[in-house]
């Protein structure tokens, strides 16, 4: 069994909304073309203030690989599962396309992939991790917003970042215990 717990730490102060992560992900994971098909995203948050006193943040996101998974709970065929390393998975063959999981996910992190006939979402690029490489979005990010690693390793960059900086998760009130951490 794996003794890893994968997580991602994001420093949104560095995010310039360049969408490199989105295109890298689409190319890496053969996400079908179309604006409604995506495994990750950069959200342009609402503009703050009035001209000329303005501010804006950009928030990248993807499947939060939650510890408490509403997507898994509602899946009638157990297509959605969780690996020992924390990665939330979808088994294409089992998916019947009922989209309950898409409704259940508070982060809107899932889409229906017409080409494979199943719901699809971020896998932390598991196939890359297996060969010792970083997820495509992490590797390509120009300003290094995303850091990926193993939270069970106290010396990993993710552990060190979380130990050093205050951070938050998205929609904590949903009780999903997400594993994408945003530095404050």
């Amino acid at each position: 069994m794996s003794n890893k717990r994968y997580a991602m730490v994001l420093d949104t102060r560095k995010c310039i909304d360049c969408k490199a992560c989105t295109v890298a992900c689409k190319a890496e994971n053969h996400v079908p073309l179309g604006r409604e098909n995506y495994r990750n995203w950069v959200m342009e948050e609402a503009l703050r203030g009035r001209y000329p006193n303005l501010g804006q943040e950009f928030t990248p996101g993807q499947c939060m690989h939650c510890a408490n998974t509403p997507c898994k709970r509602v899946c009638p065929t157990k297509a959605t599962g969780v690996n020992a390393d924390g990665i939330v998975t979808v088994e294409n063959k089992k998916c019947i396309g009922c989209k309950y999981c898409m409704t259940a996910c508070p982060y809107n992190a899932r889409y229906y992939n017409e080409e494979i006939g199943a719901v699809d979402k971020c896998t932390f690029c598991e196939h890359r991790i297996l060969t010792g490489r970083e997820p495509a979005c992490v590797e390509t990010c120009p300003t290094r917003v995303r850091v990926f690693g193993d939270l069970n390793d106290p010396n990993s960059e993710v552990s060190l970042l979380l130990a050093k900086h205050p951070h938050r998760v998205m929609k904590p009130e949903m009780g999903t215990k997400p594993y994408l951490f945003y530095l404050i």
Binding site: C18, K19, A20, T22, V23, A24, K26, A27, E28, A136, E139, T140, C141, P142
Partner: peptide, 23 residues
């Protein structure tokens, strides 16, 4: 299949590829 950033290119492009590079 994919274009990945070249880590050796760090001194010039900081080992990244933007949206266009990935496209």
């Amino acid at each position: 299949q994919k274009l990945d950033p070249n880590p050796e290119f760090f001194i010039r492009s900081r080992a990244m590829l933007c949206a266009r590079g990935n496209a």
